[in-house]
Every structure is written in structure tokens, then in C-alpha cells.
């Protein structure tokens, strides 16, 4: 395996500091990786403009590139803006397994394809929003009407 391929894999495996069950590639934060001689250019898209985790992610990426013997050049890519629609099916499943309700899938016009937010613990479709704005802007706090478990919901964005 060449150094560049190994680096690409290592970058894709960097966990998100806020939701470590997902990698920066799962979330769509890692946009593109390009090796230009000794320099490696990486484009990252912030989930939210003021996301404090982005500075940590940037540091993680730079360290990873240096560890592989390259020079990092990390750039912020604002367009197209980040959306939860970029989360893969596998990423949604892993979120659910860790007790976080994944963002609901949407069609091309932004319409929700699944209406209820199901409880990630017992799977019941009857849940109630407790707080629309929870610990981070991307999450809401809900409670399951069936098993009473409180859980976080990664909001559609």
C-alpha cells in the first residue's frame, strides 16, 4: 500500500470529537484529499459555522498528515453547505446502536421520507420532543413514550 493510500485511509478513520462513533468521513466533513508532491491538500466542511470541534478536527488532520511524512494544507470548504443528508446508511445505523436517533432521510425537495423519530433503544415510533435545542445545535432531546428512555436526536439540517 502506497503512503498516499494509507494516509487517505487514516484520514477517513479520524473520529468526530463530538460524536466519536462516527468518523469525519461518515459525517461528510472530509471533502477531498489531494497529494501534490510532498504537500497534502485537504478540504473540510464545517457542520455549523461556529462548530468548536472544527479546530480540533483540523488539528487531528494536520497531525495525521505529518505522521505519514507529508506537509498538511487544510482548507475550509463552505460550498455546498453541509447537510445531514450526507450521512451514509451505515453511519445512521451506528448512531442508532449508540443510542442517538439519526437524522431522518429527506427527498430532493427537503421533504421528510420518514415521519416519526423512532426510539433508538426500543424502536417504538411514539416519542416526544423535550427540548428542541439540546447540548449542541445539531441535537434535540427527546423521550420515548413507550420505554421512557430520554435520547438525543441528530436533527435534520
Amino acid at each position: 500500500m502506497s503512503g498516499a493510500v494509507a494516509l487517505r485511509r487514516a484520514l477517513a478513520a479520524i473520529p468526530d470529537p463530538e460524536i466519536p462513533v462516527l468518523t469525519i468521513e461518515d459525517l461528510g466533513i472530509l471533502r477531498d484529499v489531494r497529494a501534490v508532491g510532498q504537500r497534502v491538500e485537504v478540504g473540510v466542511t464545517p457542520t455549523y459555522s461556529g462548530c468548536p470541534a472544527l479546530d480540533v478536527i483540523r488539528g487531528d488532520i494536520e497531525r495525521c498528515i505529518r505522521d505519514h511524512g507529508f506537509d498538511p494544507d487544510v482548507r475550509t470548504v463552505l460550498s455546498p453547505p453541509w447537510t445531514t443528508d450526507w450521512l451514509s446508511v451505515d453511519a445512521r445505523r451506528r448512531l442508532q446502536e449508540h443510542g442517538v436517533a439519526p437524522p431522518r432521510r429527506r427527498d430532493a425537495t427537503g421533504g421528510l421520507l420518514e415521519l416519526p423519530v423512532a426510539c433508538p433503544v426500543c424502536g417504538d415510533q411514539h416519542t416526544t420532543e423535550v427540548a428542541h435545542f439540546a447540548s449542541t445545535p445539531c441535537q434535540a432531546l427527546r423521550r420515548c413514550d413507550a420505554c421512557s428512555e430520554p435520547f438525543q436526536h441528530l436533527k435534520e439540517h
Binding site: Y48, S49, G50, C51, H132, F133, A134, P137
Partner: peptide, 20 residues
């Protein structure tokens, strides 16, 4: 507490937009 978090999260969005 929820409102505290909501207002400061909105503040964070605005700070990020301001930085850009």
C-alpha cells in the same frame, strides 16, 4: 438550562458566521 444552551448555541453560529 435548555434555554441557556439554546442561546449560546445561536451565539456560536453567529460567531462562526462573523469569522467567515
Amino acid at each position: 438550562l435548555e434555554e441557556d444552551v439554546a442561546l449560546t448555541n445561536i451565539a456560536l453560529d453567529l460567531l462562526g458566521q462573523g469569522r467567515s
